[in-house]
Amino acid sequence: MIVAHDLYAETNPAFCSYILATFASAYEQEKSSGPEMLLCYAALPIALSGDLEKTFSGTNRLTGLLEWLQRNPVVQIDLRERIDNSAEIVTEAIQFGCFSKLLTINEQGLVSTGPKSTNKSAINRLGSPNLNAFKRARSLGHWMAMAGSTRTTLNMMGLTV
Rank of each mutant, 00 (worst) to 15 (best):
V74T: 11
N130A: 08
R136C: 07
P115D: 10
I123M: 10
T118W: 01
M156S: 13
L38V: 15
K120L: 09
I83K: 06
T152I: 07
G127L: 14
K54R: 14
I83A: 12
R138G: 05
S32Q: 15
P35S: 14
A145L: 06
M146L: 11
N60A: 10
D84W: 03
I83G: 07
G141E: 02
L48K: 00
R80P: 03
E30Y: 15
N155S: 12
H142T: 04
V161A: 14
C98E: 06
P129E: 01
I94D: 01
A145H: 04
L79H: 03
E53Y: 03
Q108S: 13
A122R: 08
I2F: 15
L39P: 12
N60L: 04
V74I: 10
A47I: 08
P129R: 06
P35D: 10
G141M: 02
K135R: 12
N119A: 10
K31W: 11
A147P: 09
F15L: 08
A9H: 09
L159C: 10
F96D: 01
T22S: 08
K120S: 08
G64S: 02
M157G: 05
S117I: 04
G64M: 01
A122F: 12
L79N: 05
T113W: 01
P129G: 02
A87D: 08
L159F: 10
C40F: 10
L52D: 00
E30D: 15
A122W: 03
N106I: 06
T152Q: 04
E10S: 05
A43T: 13
R80N: 14
R80G: 12
M156T: 11
I2D: 13
T11V: 13
V3Y: 13
A133T: 04
P73Y: 09
T11F: 08
A4M: 14
T113Q: 05
K120F: 04
A145M: 04
S32T: 15
A24R: 05
L20W: 07
E36R: 15
L102D: 01
S139V: 08
N60V: 03
N130G: 06
D78M: 12
R61H: 03
T11M: 07
F134Q: 00
R61T: 06
G64V: 01
A137G: 07
A137K: 00
C16N: 10
Q76D: 06
L131G: 06
S117E: 09
S86Y: 02
G58V: 07
M1N: 14
S100T: 10
T63G: 06
Q95D: 09
G109K: 06
I19P: 00
I77W: 05
I19H: 00
K31R: 15
A43Y: 03
T22V: 08
E107K: 11
G64H: 02
E53L: 08
T113D: 00
M144S: 02
T160S: 15
A43R: 07
M146E: 09
L39H: 13
R151E: 09
T153D: 00
E92Q: 13
R138C: 09
F23G: 00
S112G: 07
W143E: 01
H142S: 03
G97Q: 02
A93E: 03
F99W: 04
